[in-house]
Amino acid sequence: MRSDRSQSAPTGLKIAAAAGLAFLHLPILLIFVYAFTTEEKSYQWPPPGFTTQWFAVTWGRADVWQALGLSVQVAAISTGIALVLGTLCAAAVSQTRFFGREAISLLVILPIALPGIITGIALRSAFSLAEIPFSFWTIVLGHATFCVVVVYNNAVARFRRTSGSLIEASMDLGADGFQTFRHVILPNIGTALLAGGMLAFALSFDEVIVTTFTAGQQQTLPIWMLEELVRPRQRPVTNVVAMVVVLATLLPILAAYYLTREGDQIAGAGK
């Protein structure tokens, strides 16, 4: 008997599944709990008391706002670059045939397969070689390398599902290139771009490794958190920030998931 759906799973399997899920998600809850602890020097379990004072403290800290602002800007611009380049590249690879097409497809995807540390070192040496000072824009470039992949993967999957004759039909009916893009291509790949863009944003937002190598004095939010962990004062502030970030990113990711679940999966989400 292959699949009797009404039959329930064995108790052992249920426990194993519950344990697996608990292992994945309990630590996140722990982060939330420590955001309310009264102990500020170490993570003590059980928390000696609960307070909401850290929310006010966090609100008042200028370094938090600075790091958050930088991260949002970097993520937004990297995603913007990725949306343009990724879409153009996906269109070229899926709509036309040319020599080396498969190779280009592979080369575009490679940055996400490479360990971040390799990308980071490579970019750092390239920037030094070209005597480009580390700045906001070097961080953006570093993030764009993997953001492009996410958008590309989503767009290419959608392009493949979209019949090429739609574009010909549009031209045949009198639409020029721009009108065809606006009225036929964009509506058909729109949700894929939205999903790809959200993922790209999320990836950029919590990127540490590549950022470490391509940033100058700037601190993005994840880098700020790392530094904060080794300081003894006001530790729960980090937890408050973490909690807000988790809640703020969860919603877009869920939305992206629901937008693309019919058909193509969110490729490259594993970085």
Partner: peptide, 29 residues
């Protein structure tokens, strides 16, 4: 180019625009 020819095509796979309803498909040109 195709969009400047007074010629129209019925495609083998019909190539109807999936995001538009029938009326907007027909009215596209």
């Amino acid at each position: 180019p195709p969009y400047r020819r007074n010629v129209n095509t019925v495609f083998q796979d019909y190539a109807l625009f999936p995001h538009l309803n029938v009326l907007d498909n027909v009215a596209y040109g």
